[in-house]
């Protein structure tokens, strides 16, 4: 039993470390701030969560494991809030994203409410 838990946590920690490092490489390689945000979210989600899950298997059933789960919950709930605020602030400051395709002007299908007029809100025109 001990051996199995050890093996699982080994695998989780190794995987988490891999995603951490590759997310950080993405942080260096990506061309602009929006694409870098995607790389950073790999670190925030899969990398951090796998690493911490691996540590949970090391901690066993204890208060420590519970605290590690709190750390996961913290990242889970506040990570997207921070990256959303960052993306919105960057757009607001007028930083132009590198785009391969811009579909912001498209009609949004579905829903029963009337379409809002074509005006873009809070988004600098490209």
């Amino acid at each position: 039993m001990e051996v199995i838990a050890d093996a699982i946590s080994w695998v989780l920690i190794a995987l988490g470390s891999f995603f951490l490092v590759s997310g950080a490489i993405g942080l260096i390689r990506m061309p602009d701030v929006y694409t870098r945000m995607h790389a950073a979210s790999v670190i925030d989600t899969l990398g951090a969560m796998l690493l911490i899950l691996g540590l949970v298997f090391q901690a066993g059933f204890s208060l420590l494991a519970l605290k590690l789960l709190f750390v996961i919950a913290l990242l889970f709930f506040f990570g997207p809030v921070a990256s959303h605020a960052l993306a919105q602030a960057a757009l607001h400051a007028g930083i132009e994203p590198l785009l391969a395709e811009d579909r912001r002007g498209r009609d949004v299908p579905g829903g029963d409410e009337p379409e809002p007029d074509g005006k873009q809100e809070g988004v600098p025109s490209t």
Binding site: A100, E101, R103, R104, V108
Partner: peptide, 8 residues
């Protein structure tokens, strides 16, 4: 990469 902005 092919960064895309869209509205949903």
């Amino acid at each position: 990469i092919s960064p895309t902005f869209t509205r949903v």
